[in-house]
Design a protein around this nucleic acid. Structure first.
Lengths: 238, 238
DNA sequence: TCAAAAGTGTTAGATTTACACCCATGC
DNA sequence: GCATGGGTGTAAATCTAACACTTTTGA
C-alpha cells in the first residue's frame, strides 16, 4: 500500500575508473587495463549479498549533484572525482520494495592513477564481469557505460579518466579499456590533437627497461568538460 | 523555511511541432515552416502573465512518462504525441518559490500536419521568438531544442515530426525548421535512404498548380524511436 | 514551348582507419 | 648492432555538402 506524499528521492552514481587488473597482461585489447565500476555489497535486507551502486537519499536542502558528491564521500575521496554528470531518472513506483523511491542516476569518473581508500564492503568490478546486482542497478551501469563511450567520441571527457600528464600509449590503453575495443595510438594522437583536446607538454617520458624511444608527454588542454566536435567520431575498427 | 519531506516532484514537457506560420513565405531557410513550442500563460501568482511549459505534480502511483502524458492531456490530444523522452532534472532547492520542487523535464514531439485544439491560455511559440518565460523554463526549452537537433542526425526521430507520408521537399522543410539551417533535399534523401530510415511508398504526390514534376512519396521505415547510426552526421552548411 | 519542381550524377573536401616505414633509446 | 617501443607519412575507404544537369509536369 502506498501512502501519498511518502515518496523518497535517491541518488545513484556509477563511478568508473580504468584500472590495471592482475599481472597477466592481455595486450590483445587494452594492455591489462580494464574499465571498472565501484560497487558495495549489501549486508542488510533487502537483497543481502547483492551488489549496489553508491548513493542514498536526497536531502531537502541540497540539489542532486551536491547530494551525489556527499553520498559518494562515504565511499571514495570525492576530490578524486573529476567528472559528474546526470543520467536518467528511474521512476517506476515499484522499482524497489517499500516506500516509493525515485532514483536520479549519475555518471562519475575517477582518473586512472588514483587509488582511493575504500570501505571493506566496497570494491571495483570490471564492467566485463559484473556480479549480480540489486534492483535496477545493472541497467544504470550499462547505460552509464554506453554514455561514457559515446562521449569519448565528441567531447574531451577523457580528461576525467586520464592522469594529468600521460603518453599517447597510456591514453590509448585508457580509451581502449573504456570503449572496449582496440584504439590506434597513432590516430588517437592525431584526432585529439587536431581538435585541440590534448597538447604536448614538451617533456618526454623515460623509455622502459627494454629500451624504446622515449614517449612525448601530453596533457588535456581543458580540465573541464567541453563538447569538442558535435559531429566527430571514434569508430570501432572495421 | 523548508520543512523536511515536503518536497514536490513535478514534470515539465517541452512539446515541439513544425508549423507553417503566417502567409509570408520566407524561402531563405525553411519555406515558412518554423519549429514551435507549446506554452501556456500564467493567470495566477507567481509570475502572472509569463509563459510556462505544460506539466504538473507527479502522483505517487505513476512513473514519470505516464505523468507527463497525463499532464499533457490537459493541453493537447495526447494521441498526437509521437515521441516523448526524458531530459534533465532541475533540482536547485530554490528554483521556484514556496515548497521545494524538483522538475523532471521531457522532450515531446507532435507530427507536423496535426492541429490539436488548445485551451485559450495555450499557444504555439516559434523557438526563434520566445516570450519571457517563468522560472527556469527557458533553459528547458533551449536544452530540448539542442537535444532534438542532435538526435535528428543519428536517429530516426524525424518520424515524430513528419506526417505518415511525405515528399522529400516536405521532409526537407521540417528538418530545416527543426535544425535552424538550410538542409539540401538531395542529400537528405540520399543520407536517410542509405541508412534505411525512409523508404519510398511507390506512389507520387500531384504537382502544384504551377507545374513541376510530381514528387515521390516516402514514409519512415520505423514508427518507433531508433538509433540509426551512432556516428552519422547532418552537418550544417559550410 | 516554357517555367517550375523533383530527381540524378558528379565532384570536391573532410575525416578516419590501416599500415608501412623511419627514429631514438637501452642493453 | 639490434630489439623495442614511439612517431611520421601516406594510402584507401567512407561520408557529406554543393551544384550542374536531366526529367516530368502544368499552363
Amino acid at each position: 500500500m502506498i501512502v501519498n506524499g511518502s515518496t523518497v528521492h535517491e541518488v545513484l552514481v556509477a563511478v568508473f575508473q580504468v584500472r590495471h587488473l592482475g599481472g597477466h597482461d592481455d595486450p590483445k585489447h587494452h594492455n591489462g587495463a580494464e574499465l571498472c565500476v565501484l560497487l558495495w555489497e549489501r549486508a542488510m535486507a533487502p537483497m543481502v549479498g547483492m551488489w549496489s551502486l553508491p548513493g542514498g537519499k536526497l536531502r531537502s536542502d541540497e540539489d542532486l549533484p551536491t547530494s551525489a558528491r556527499r553520498q559518494l564521500a562515504e565511499k571514495v575521496d570525492v576530490r578524486e572525482l573529476a567528472h559528474l554528470e546526470q543520467l536518467s531518472v528511474f521512476s517506476d513506483p515499484h522499482r524497489v520494495p517499500g516506500r516509493r523511491t525515485i532514483a536520479s542516476t549519475f555518471l562519475g569518473l575517477v582518473p586512472s592513477p588514483a587509488e582511493p581508500e575504500l570501505p571493506s564492503d566496497t570494491t571495483w568490478h570490471p564492467v566485463t564481469a559484473l556480479p549480480e546486482m540489486a534492483f535496477d542497478h545493472r541497467t544504470v551501469v550499462d547505460y552509464a557505460h554506453s554514455r561514457l563511450a559515446a562521449k569519448l567520441s565528441y567531447t574531451n571527457i577523457g580528461f576525467a579518466l586520464a592522469p594529468e600528464q600521460f603518453t599517447i600509449s597510456t591514453l590509448k590503453s585508457i580509451y581502449s579499456a573504456a570503449l572496449g575495443y582496440h584504439v590506434d595510438a597513432t590516430n588517437l594522437q592525431r584526432v585529439l590533437g587536431r581538435r585541440g583536446v590534448i597538447t604536448p607538454t614538451g617533456s618526454t617520458a623515460p623509455s622502459g627497461r627494454s629500451g624504446g624511444r622515449p614517449a612525448a608527454v601530453y596533457r588535456f588542454a581543458d580540465s573541464r568538460y567541453r563538447v569538442t566536435d558535435e559531429f566527430a567520431a571514434l569508430r570501432p575498427p572495421g
